[in-house]
């Protein structure tokens, strides 16, 4: 987990100012900067590539529509992740209704693949209050302060959930983790 919150860079601010004026090149630049991170985050939340792509596209559509909500001193990244999170939650609600299968995750090789698949399965089974801090802080390397803002909770609450979540995940992994040690 990064110790410090990440602030918008000068270039991002320039693009955001251009975006506020409806510049399509600015939206393209913002997509180039953030598209991959948003997609990965959505995929981790949803476990389904097609849905993650859709949520990523929808995130940028919301950005365009809701630019006026972004405060001049606000961290764009945090706002972006919050939009994505809300869209993922909507998708997950739809999934609960329709029970869509998740994709088989990732394509890394060697022995750890099995463990990673087990980890992703165990992660999916955790309650959201533990799963989300793990995704944001450990998988997406977002600072505790920014993650707390995305989840709209205090930093101590975030850390408490993160620590409990790690222990819950470890306990779920049980024997699989023992074999890897």
């Amino acid at each position: 987990m990064s110790g410090e919150p990440q602030y918008d860079t000068f270039a991002e601010k320039r693009w955001l100012a251009a975006l506020a004026k409806g510049d399509p090149e600015a939206l393209g630049a913002i997509y180039e900067i953030y598209g991959e991170r948003i997609f990965r985050y959505a995929f981790r939340m949803l476990g389904n590539r097609s849905d993650a792509e859709d949520v990523t596209a929808e995130t940028f559509l919301r950005v365009m529509r809701r630019m006026n909500e972004l405060r001049a001193d606000g961290a764009f990244r945090t706002w972006l992740f919050r939009i994505t999170r809300n869209l993922c939650i909507d998708k997950m609600r739809q999934h609960k209704l329709m029970e869509l299968p998740a994709d088989t995750p990732y394509n890394s090789s060697v022995d750890r693949t099995t463990l990673r698949i087990t980890v992703h399965q165990a992660l999916k089974e955790l309650p959201d209050e533990y799963r989300e801090p793990l995704i944001l802080c450990d998988l997406e390397d977002i600072s505790a302060k920014d993650a707390a803002e995305v989840l709209k909770i205090s930093v101590p609450a975030l850390k408490s959930r993160l620590y409990r979540g790690r222990r819950a995940l470890r306990d779920k992994l049980g024997g699989s983790l023992e074999r890897a040690l």
């Binding site: 991959e36 990965r40 980890v119 790690r166 983790l177 040690l181």
Partner: peptide
């Protein structure tokens, strides 16, 4: 050891291909 390994697995996860 087990908790550290759990965190390491998460932090080194390559994520979905983009």
């Amino acid at each position: 050891v087990s908790l550290k390994e759990t965190v390491n697995i998460l932090r080194t996860d390559p994520g979905a291909e983009f």
